[in-house]
Design a protein around this nucleic acid. Sequence first.
DNA 1: TGTCAGTTTGCAACCGGGTTGCATGTGCGG
DNA 2: CCGCACATGCAACCCGGTTGCAAACTGACA
Lengths: 143, 143
Amino acid sequence: MTDGTTIEQQLQAHGIHPTAARILVLQKLSELTHPVSMTELETELETMDKSTIFRTLNVLLEHHAIHSFEDGSGSTKYEICRCESTVCRVENRHIHFYCEECRRTFCIEDVKIPVVALPEGYRIETINYTVKGLCPECSKRQA
Amino acid sequence: MTDGTTIEQQLQAHGIHPTAARILVLQKLSELTHPVSMTELETELETMDKSTIFRTLNVLLEHHAIHSFEDGSGSTKYEICRCESTVCRVENRHIHFYCEECRRTFCIEDVKIPVVALPEGYRIETINYTVKGLCPECSKRQA
DNA sequence: TGTCAGTTTGCAACCGGGTTGCATGTGCGG
DNA sequence: CCGCACATGCAACCCGGTTGCAAACTGACA
């Protein structure tokens, strides 16, 4: 989904009416290599209003063009969905690492979310797997 | 740790000076069978101020008498630590389920957090594993 | 037992992420 | 060209969490 296709095509592929705001937000998310908070997007996209970003993110989420998850930072993080198909299965998603020292959030692309078996009756929609601790840089600095 | 010991003894075992507030909070947490938010505690313990509860929870957390985690509800949830020892290993901790319909958080005691291997350098402090979806009741109601 | 220092608590104010209502703008079909 | 539905900006708001400060408490020591 990241290849030749334009941002606009990606939006349409997810059934989203491509407006300026939506293109800009998705564009930005596809450029960034790490997950961002709403506030970070706000500073990146100075022209755009907070509420617009908020609503845009929600549209993108509903149509599964992006993912959101909570690291322990307090604010929700967003990242573009790089799935091949339009529906992204839980077990294809990677885990995240939140460094309590430098407060950065890392994608651990290589490690997929381990899916557990739940007791009868539960219907799994999504799984949040976030590891907290010290990132390589910070743990080295501390040692 | 849940057995014969009094709340006061539990506090002391964790090196916490047992004050009225701390006893009440830990008491309440040990009574409850499900994780609660600060706000829920606030309504349960009407006499106690929000800030006191906040600071008390932090003391309990620092001394590993309780756990905290984020389900997707937006507010942090707290639950008593039922570990035998004073230090609670990640792999002994159970996972949680957040129902997007009834907004309740469930402990899945039987299922422990799967621990993944991270690339070199990361130091794991804690892991947040929360499944979101529909609880048995709500998924039955929907069907 | 009285006093003092350090700790704990309550109150009030604050902060920041997230959310909403409403008025304005924009694009598209007729 | 008009009208409508949808999208955006602005401002205000909500609420969980956090902090500064002063009062209350506790425990140690004279």
